[in-house]
Every structure is written in C-alpha cells, then in structure tokens.
Amino acid sequence: MSVFTLTVNGRRHTVDVDPATPLLYVLADDLNLHGPKFGCGLGQCGACTVLVNGEATRSCSVAVQSAAAGEIVTLEGLGSPQQPHPIQQAFISEQAMQCGYCISGVMLTAKALLDRNPNATDAEIQQALSTVLCRCGAHIRMLRAIDRYARGLREVPQP
C-alpha cells in the first residue's frame, strides 16, 4: 500500500492503496465517483474515461501511481444537473443516450479532441470515437450532440 494525493475535479484527495490499482477503482470505489464506469477493464470500450491533464484517458488501464500527478476530471467535474457544462447540455438537448452508461467515453473523448481543436473535422471526431462503444445504439444522437458542442465552441471564441 502507498499513499497518493490525487487532484480530482479540482479537489485533493489522499488515498492509501496498492500502487498498481487501476485509477478507475480509486475513483469509483475510494472516492465514490459515478462518472467513470467499469465496462471492460481492458481499455476496449471507453466507459471508464476521465480527463487527465485534458487528455481522454481510460482509467481502467492506468495504474493510480502513473496518473496521480495529473489533474483528473470526471463527468461530475464538468458540471451539475442544474448547471451542466456546454457539452453536457448538448447531450441533454439532443437526448443523446439511452442507458447512459457509456457516456463518459463518448463525451470526454469528444471534449478532449474539440477543446484542443475546435475545428476538428467530422472524420477526426469519428476517428477519435472509433474505439468508443455504445451498446444502446445512440450513435447518431451522440454525434449530433458533439456537433452542437463544436459549433458552440467555434461561435464563442475561447479566452
């Protein structure tokens, strides 16, 4: 066991865990966050996605020790039901999910890409999502929600 201090959604947390523990388990079980979810544990689906220093990262496949130094953001860190982040609002407006279990992967993968490059092409967005899974088949609405967010980014110049 080792002690790590993690910065998650802007708050610092100290945990005492096996350094090899996947980041997902620390977030979901030690910190009781609901955003990142266990889907496969194999890096194949995206359900566990979080942002680490703005990069979409599959938290099931990184050990806590290698992610501890970064700024970690989960869905909860973006916004709340009352004040959703623009990308969350875009998914709500488009009703872009069914069970919603996959949403961390879809939303955060797209956000990481678009925040880096608001002019990302459809092909680039699809490429980024080509390893993100949604079993309910909400694909089309999700792409529409991402497009809505991207348009918003392009309209409002970022400071």
Binding site: A28, L78, P81, G100
Partner: peptide
C-alpha cells in the same frame, strides 16, 4: 417530454447499480 434521468446521467450523478 425530455427524459427525466438524462441530466443526471450526463453529469455523472446518476446512481447505477454499479454505484
């Protein structure tokens, strides 16, 4: 009527059995 549960799902506050 928009789904009542989607805002919680989209913001990571929905409680699944996994949570």
């Amino acid at each position: 009527v928009p789904r009542l549960d989607i805002p919680a799902m989209a913001t990571g506050t929905f409680e699944y059995v996994q949570n």
